[in-house]
């Protein structure tokens, strides 16, 4: 008797759980050779709203976590990713990559996790500054996470581009809500399963699938989103996001370089606030011999 293959139900990833979209809608993107990839959730604005609530509720705790511990968790993501290499490579091939390109992209993705794991507890001391001031004060600037970041993931690079975009965000202690590539969603959904088993607190990364045009306005006007990071936007999208972002002065970061090749600490700083503090000190020079 011929065995019937058990097909996977593709779902969203919100607050550490895998719900279906509340809208009940789905779409059917096509992969290599016009083959339908699956019934993919078409996330709605309410799914996005729920994801922002989930992200907000954990953003504070994640940002306060020991940076070294964030680093360990990012490293753990790399471990889990490597363990699922075959599955990711297969999905990349379904999305149209050659076997060699798929293998390469998976390796880049894992290496990015290790790279940003390393930066978690180093960007602060590398980029913070002690500022010269003309008074008896110790004046210094440190980086603080912005909070909740919405992400329009790269459309073309389904795995390495996705990770290259979100890793710097969470490495810096933010939580994020990601709208995955519309035409290549499989890796994002599988990545959610990796994240769910990586000691990453539920809600730090939330992954939605769906239509970019439809969600663009709701994402960019949401008052509880602190920043937007986006790749592969049309000019119309860019203009709309920038206009909408003025409601609560969101920071809009449009990644110009290919996030799939991202090995730089600067994307971490892109979603950080700078806090400058004064502290009075006694000047050892002015104090004279009493010192």
């Amino acid at each position: 008797m011929k065995r019937i293959e058990v097909l996977k139900t593709y779902k969203l990833y919100i607050g550490g759980k895998f719900p279906r979209t509340e809208s009940g809608r789905y779409y059917t993107p096509e992969g290599r050779g016009g083959k339908v990839l699956g019934n993919i959730c078409q996330g709605s604005r309410k799914d996005f709203r729920n994801a922002v609530v989930a992200a907000r509720s954990v953003a504070g705790g994640w940002g306060k976590r020991d940076p070294y511990n964030r680093s360990q968790i990012l490293y753990r993501i790399a471990e889990m990713l490597e363990g699922r290499a075959a599955q990711f490579e297969d999905e990349l091939k379904q999305h149209g990559s050659t076997a060699a390109a798929a293998r390469k992209e998976l390796q880049v993705a894992v290496d990015q996790c290790i790279y940003y794991a390393g930066w978690c507890d180093k960007y602060q001391q590398t980029f913070s500054s002690v500022n010269p001031v003309a008074s008896a004060h110790f004046n210094f600037s440190v980086y603080q996470p912005m909070g909740v970041v919405a992400v329009f993931a790269p459309e073309k690079s389904a795995l390495a581009g996705l990770l290259g975009t979100i890793l710097p965000i969470i490495a810096g202690g933010n939580a994020c809500v990601v709208l995955a590539s519309e035409s290549k969603p499989l890796c994002a959904i599988t990545l959610a399963e990796v994240l769910a088993t990586s000691d990453l607190p539920g809600g730090v990364i939330n992954i939605l699938t769906g239509n970019r045009d439809e969600l663009l306005d709701n994402v960019s006007t949401h008052m509880d989103v602190n920043a937007i990071v986006a790749s592969d936007l049309t000019d119309a999208h860019k203009a709309a996001i920038k206009a909408n972002a003025t409601h609560n002065l969101k920071r809009v970061i449009i990644r110009k370089e290919d996030p799939a090749k991202s090995e730089s600490p600067y994307p971490i700083l892109a979603t950080q606030e700078i806090k400058t503090t004064w502290h009075p000190i006694e000047s050892s020079i002015a104090a004279g011999s009493g010192y």
Binding site: R49, N218, T221, H222, M223, D224, H247, N248
Partner: peptide
């Protein structure tokens, strides 16, 4: 307003 809100406002 048509915009989702944030608690701190």
């Amino acid at each position: 307003s048509g915009h989702y809100q944030a608690a701190h406002y």
